[in-house]
Simulated assay, not measured.
Amino acid sequence: MSDDQLCGLAVVLDGSEHEVAAAHWAANWAEHSHHHLSLIEPSELVSAQTSSQRHRARRLAGELRCNHPGLTVDHRILDGGPDAVIRRVSPRCTAMAVSRPSGYRQATRRLAAPQCPLVVVTDEPTDTRTISLLVDPRQTGYAPTAFAFAYAASCGSDLHALLIGADSEQSPGEDVIGQLAVCYPSVALQTSALPSWGGVADEVAGSQLVVVGSWTDRQGRQRIDHGFLVAQAMADVDSPVALIAHEPAA
């Protein structure tokens, strides 16, 4: 299978300490959502590995197949580095999972903006039923909120929507939440506001998943100021973080 045939969930392996957690998280999600799973290694990293390291992806794939007998797992090596691979294959994936890079706490480190949900994983999530959704009150896009509601509904989870920097007036972000809440009556919704990104880490601690949107502007460019604030706020969050930097094709 070539990269232009991808249509399930993908994990970009990077040899980091968190890649196994990312792969297991993605396997659980793929099995639950009836997708196949692709373990992808960027060729730039493979060429720098020792002989023993080159077998780790195959061992991991075997472990996932053993733990998830009904799951289709394939392993492939694609040209380029991690960011290049994410950009190249994300349009053909339902979602992607990556391990949190070691430089994530540095203000200069940014993840590639994907065209599908990108879930950043550090450790196995805690056993909770709460999905946290971080909303820019000015956002008019549906993708982050729709993803959060759909994921919460599929997992039987609650949804806690946090509007960052909201004022007293009704905002487009709140309108989107209200419209989608009607479509997902089974999801228990709680909405609250925070004055800034400063208190986000405490509010989402222990979440099953944290969903964040508005990482790009309308031209597809990363909003440096917003991306910086999000990166800082998320640096101390151990829950998986889903970055939604796209809108579905019309």
Score class of each variant (00 low, 15 high):
231 A>I: 04
223 R>G: 05
199 G>W: 02
241 V>Y: 04
202 D>S: 11
222 Q>V: 11
241 V>P: 01
199 G>E: 08
198 G>Y: 08
214 S>N: 11
194 L>I: 05
233 A>D: 02
231 A>H: 10
230 V>E: 04
223 R>D: 11
209 L>R: 02
226 H>Q: 14
216 T>A: 13
200 V>Q: 01
217 D>K: 10
229 L>E: 13
235 A>T: 07
200 V>N: 01
229 L>G: 05
211 V>E: 02
198 G>S: 15
194 L>K: 06
194 L>M: 13
210 V>Q: 00
211 V>I: 10
204 V>Y: 00
220 G>W: 06
213 G>E: 00
246 H>E: 06
236 D>S: 14
240 P>H: 02
247 E>D: 09
239 S>D: 00
215 W>S: 08
242 A>H: 03
246 H>C: 07
221 R>S: 12
246 H>W: 10
211 V>K: 03
226 H>Y: 12
244 I>Q: 03
218 R>Y: 13
219 Q>W: 14
229 L>H: 14
210 V>W: 00
225 D>T: 11
226 H>E: 13
199 G>H: 05
211 V>F: 04
225 D>E: 14
214 S>L: 10
215 W>R: 13
213 G>N: 09
209 L>H: 03
198 G>W: 06
210 V>C: 05
220 G>Y: 08
237 V>L: 00
233 A>E: 03
223 R>K: 14
221 R>V: 10
232 Q>H: 12
211 V>D: 01
196 S>W: 09
209 L>E: 01
241 V>M: 07
205 A>T: 04
236 D>E: 15
216 T>W: 06
219 Q>K: 15
202 D>K: 07
207 S>L: 05
195 P>K: 11
224 I>G: 12
246 H>R: 12
227 G>P: 04
220 G>S: 08
220 G>M: 07
238 D>F: 06
